[in-house]
């Protein structure tokens, strides 16, 4: 089977500052990858390298065997859905939820073409899937953080992607809303078998869901492997630079923060 995503000696940065370097990563289609690491490690940049928003200053990024270049970036990224970290939206913005969800098809439609009944039905279906049908006529700026993340996920699904990139989708959400979003992501991944990258600090959820984990620290990948291989007290403690303790609750490993 070919690789869905393959990074070879990739490096990226902003201006003269290198944020990621020497990145080697191979991901098979349908894998669910959990990307973890401390703040500023380069996790978000890793996602933007994959969807072409960041240009590698060294090495190559391959999507479905094709090398990602400036020339084919726009074409390739139509297959990659991206849910960025929750951003501030003006509560007066003249955009409705259904319009934001429909944006998912705009890249594929191309310039000068407008969404028809097929695209609108797809948007309706995805809004139903993530449970925001009742919100579709609401202004986007008036939603709660959790609702806005559901809209972002619906927009990503409308894109009918092969790869789904999620950048801390539960950041700034309360526990219940965060759990709802993570459950939703898991259901979607299982249903559509999307190659999924989930950047998260909710590491306790990873053993249940992720087939693989990528550990990022100081701009480098310091560990890639199956979740059960990497989900160990000393590995995670070293990654985050604080003592962590793993206990097993009903057979499930759970990370506790604090003096181990």
């Amino acid at each position: 089977m070919g690789w869905a995503v393959k990074l070879e000696q990739a490096a990226a940065g902003y201006g003269r500052q290198i944020v990621l370097q020497g990145i080697n990563l191979q991901v098979e289609p349908g894998e669910f990858i959990g990307v973890i690491g401390p703040n500023g490690a380069g996790k978000s940049t890793l996602l933007t390298l994959i969807n072409g928003l960041a240009t590698p200053c060294k090495g190559t990024v391959r999507i479905n065997q094709q090398v990602l270049t400036k020339q084919n970036r726009r074409e390739l990224c139509k297959k990659i859905a991206y849910v960025p970290q929750s951003t501030w939206v003006d509560n007066r913005l003249p955009l409705l939820v259904k319009e934001v969800v429909l944006m998912g098809v705009y890249g594929k439609l191309g310039l000068g073409r407008y969404p028809g009944a097929k695209e609108r039905d797809l948007a309706e279906e995805m809004m139903g899937l993530v449970g925001i049908n009742s919100l579709q006529e609401k202004p986007i700026g008036q939603l709660s953080g959790g609702e806005r993340q559901k809209v972002a996920i619906a927009r990503a699904l409308v894109q009918e992607p092969e790869i789904l990139l999620l950048d801390e989708p539960t950041a700034s959400l309360d526990w219940r809303a965060g759990q709802e979003i993570l459950d939703l992501i898991y259901r979607i991944q299982q249903r559509f078998k999307l190659t999924t990258f989930l950047v998260t600090h909710e590491i306790n959820q990873l053993p249940h869901w992720c087939s693989k984990m990528v550990l990022v620290k100081k701009g480098q990948i310091v560990g890639v492997g199956k979740t059960e291989e990497l989900f160990h007290q000393h590995i995670l403690s070293e990654l985050y630079g604080i003592p962590l303790k793993i206990i097993h609750d009903q057979g499930q490993p759970t990370v506790l923060y604090g003096r181990g």
């Binding site: 074409e75 960025p84 951003t87 939206v89 944006m103 890249g107 310039l111 000068g112 969404p115 894109q159």
Partner: peptide, 23 residues
Amino acid sequence: LFFFKEIQTIIFNRQIAAALGIP
């Protein structure tokens, strides 16, 4: 009229617009 849907997306978020393959 020609770029209405692209304008709509850029107004919402330029980074998302670029990630969707919109120029």
